[in-house]
């Protein structure tokens, strides 16, 4: 088993705002910040965040992703990932995994989460088995 069973609908928030506002945002306690790009945060956690530094910020629930826990990152990479993984933690890696666009969240504690859009979850699940 390379990854755990997928859990559908990872619950969180999606925040699009200016990079400076995102840098300065006071994220709710206990939430996990996944910085998808300079202007894009995926906040895993249930409490609604606010971004005081950007009045035009888009803050909206994000329930479009499924999450799984990676059991064996080395084997997953060897079998299904063409690109090089980040060498530091915590970090985020994004790209195709087994041909499906997905994200790897490499946590500081050494564990790794695999995020994929629910719409493509079945495909990824089939390909990783």
């Amino acid at each position: 088993m390379l990854v755990s069973d997928f859990f559908d609908h990872l619950s969180g928030w999606r925040i699009i705002a200016s990079p400076a506002a995102l840098d300065a945002a006071p994220w709710p306690q206990g939430s996990q910040v996944v910085r998808i790009s300079p202007d894009d945060v995926f906040l895993i956690g249930s409490e609604e965040p606010s971004v005081p530094g950007d009045p035009w910020a888009i803050v909206t629930p994000e329930l479009g992703f499924s999450i799984a826990t990676v059991h064996d990152l080395g084997a997953l990479a060897e079998q299904h990932i063409e690109w090089a993984l980040p060498t530091t933690r915590p970090s985020l890696a994004q790209g195709q995994i087994a041909g499906v666009p997905a994200k790897l969240v490499l946590l500081a504690d050494g564990s790794t989460q695999l995020l994929v859009a629910c719409a493509a979850r079945h495909e990824l699940q089939e390909r990783l088995v």
Binding site: I16, A17, D39, D40, T60, A119
Partner: peptide, 8 residues
């Protein structure tokens, strides 16, 4: 700001 919501 742009946020695609197609699959969400």
């Amino acid at each position: 700001h742009v946020l695609d919501r197609t699959v969400s």
